[in-house]
Amino acid sequence: MFRFIAINKKILVAFLLLAGVFVLLSPEIKETPRYFLFEKPFVSAINLIQSGFGLIFIQTSTTWDIYADLIGVKEENQRLIEENKRLRSETASLKEKASAYDRLIQLLKVKDSIHVDYTVASIIAKDPTNWYSSAVINKGEEDGIRPNMGVITEDGVVGRIVKTAPHYSRVLLVSDRYSAIAGAIQRTQDEGIVVGGEGRVLMLHYIMIDSEIQDGDVVLTSGMDGAFPPGIVIGTVNRVESPKNALFHSIELIPEVSLSKVREVMVLKTPQPPEIEMLLKEDTK
């Protein structure tokens, strides 16, 4: 076959032209929230192998961690006893505050917006290129995962779901150049958009120059994007620049989650906007 093509250079040119048309159409394919029919077999086969790799990695690292944990366990135990004492007194104080909070919530009849159903998933692969920050998780549509759902860990925001298959989903990490999450500064309540920056940092855009933001301020999700409930930590302000005559600050954030080390995540099953549900329904028909 290759010999035949080598003789007929016209076929080679035709292939390149067809590939060119395909590439020009590809942004449309890439934007859809579900994998296309021709993409599914490749994604399933490769993600299956990557799941195996992931399993080997988890088993090996768990065994190593157990061994490493045994070293210096006595000192660690002493330190934990001390910490336990301190935390007990803190818990008593916090319990009192929590009950006061519950009473106030009852009074205001406000629904607790942070309570969202979630599912736990493992990261099985990362983006094969260095240009984009994405990851594949081992849960998909059959586990109730839909595009635009938020992905977090106990530390903070990881990213959001951009593409789904029956058993796998792609997460666009918060550090990616295409990522955009609605955020708010905890101390001042100024709202902006958190996007991926150069390297491992994030940028907080659209914070007005008159805002009194400072280094060390914590940035939380504002809940305006529909993917995350308000109050989840995104990162901490690392650097603030206020250029003369500019309308907005230039703010650099350090993400709270170490994105290169994260292995287990929680997918928040936030209710999806009607347009995404409609797109998914159309695709299944």
């Binding site: 590439v23 490749f42 994604v43 295409y178």
Partner: peptide
């Protein structure tokens, strides 16, 4: 590679 990547376009094919 393009299928597995989050890039905006099928570039690696070329």
């Amino acid at each position: 590679v393009d299928i597995l990547s989050a890039g905006p376009v099928y570039y690696n094919i070329f």
